[in-house]
């Protein structure tokens, strides 16, 4: 469960004021709103990359507001993916698992399972240079899901993809939702993405955040 209680984030002259909402365990929520409203800032605050000036961030009821990103156990896929230029696809999937000092067998089994779900088994030995947009998205998603986080944050993950790849990724995200039950907050501008994936939809505006019925977002 993701819960924000009166969260205010300040960055220079930009202020994201008094945000409160709750996403229940296993729900898939989309966050929409015009550009520059602070959607990315909000995701960064939840995963700990941006300091929260006021309020609380709770993950499964625990106040993680002052926790380091490493301790929050949140999978995060940023808009630019930020893949690691020196690592292979396999090393991306293994990265978080190796940090947790899991056994070789567990790491191998988990990366096999992930690459199967994501359809990137044939790419494992490749470096990230030269991956297509869809392939890079799958790797970033695999990296974020590798350590079985209970919360997944996606920042416009499909915005740079062509139409057919986007539909493939919709399918994949639905499969991830069903198989992992991970609580997801997905930032998007796309109504079709929201309709296709979301259980709930939030709208970030100048005066704060509101939940909107999915039928009203079109």
């Amino acid at each position: 469960m993701i819960e924000l209680k009166g969260v205010t984030v300040k960055s220079g002259s930009f202020v994201l004021p008094n945000i409160s909402f709750q996403i229940l365990s296993g729900e898939y929520a989309v966050l929409m709103g015009t550009s520059g409203r602070g959607k990315t800032t909000l995701l960064e605050s939840i995963c700990g990359l941006r300091r929260v000036a006021e309020g609380q961030v709770l993950i499964h009821g625990r106040d993680v507001t002052r926790w380091s990103p490493a301790d929050r156990e949140i999978g995060y896929v940023p808009q630019d993916l930020a893949l690691f230029p020196k690592l292979s696809v396999l090393e991306h999937l293994e990265f978080a698992l190796r940090l947790r000092k899991l056994s070789r067998e567990v790491v191998t089994e988990r990366t096999r399972e992930l690459s199967e779900v994501l359809g990137i088994g044939h790419l494992l030995s490749r470096s990230i240079a030269g991956l297509s947009g869809g392939e890079a998205q799958r790797v970033a998603l695999g990296r974020a899901l590798s350590f079985r986080p209970s919360v997944l944050l996606l920042d416009e993950p499909l915005s740079a993809l062509d139409e057919s790849t986007r539909y493939e990724m919709h399918e994949l995200l639905r499969r991830v939702k069903q198989t992992t039950g991970v609580t997801t907050l997905h930032v998007t501008h796309s109504v079709s993405e929201a309709e296709s994936l979301a259980d709930r939809c939030f709208w970030l505006a100048a005066d704060g955040i509101q939940e909107r019925p999915l039928s009203q977002i079109c």
Binding site: L49, S68, A70, Y76, D80, F147
Partner: peptide, 21 residues
């Protein structure tokens, strides 16, 4: 791009590990 180091921290890296790795 510092973003890669930030993502590494969400994956479990300390600041030192993000620097080294």
């Amino acid at each position: 791009n510092p973003r890669a180091e930030e993502v590494a921290r969400t994956l479990g890296c300390t600041r030192g590990q993000a620097f080294w790795r």
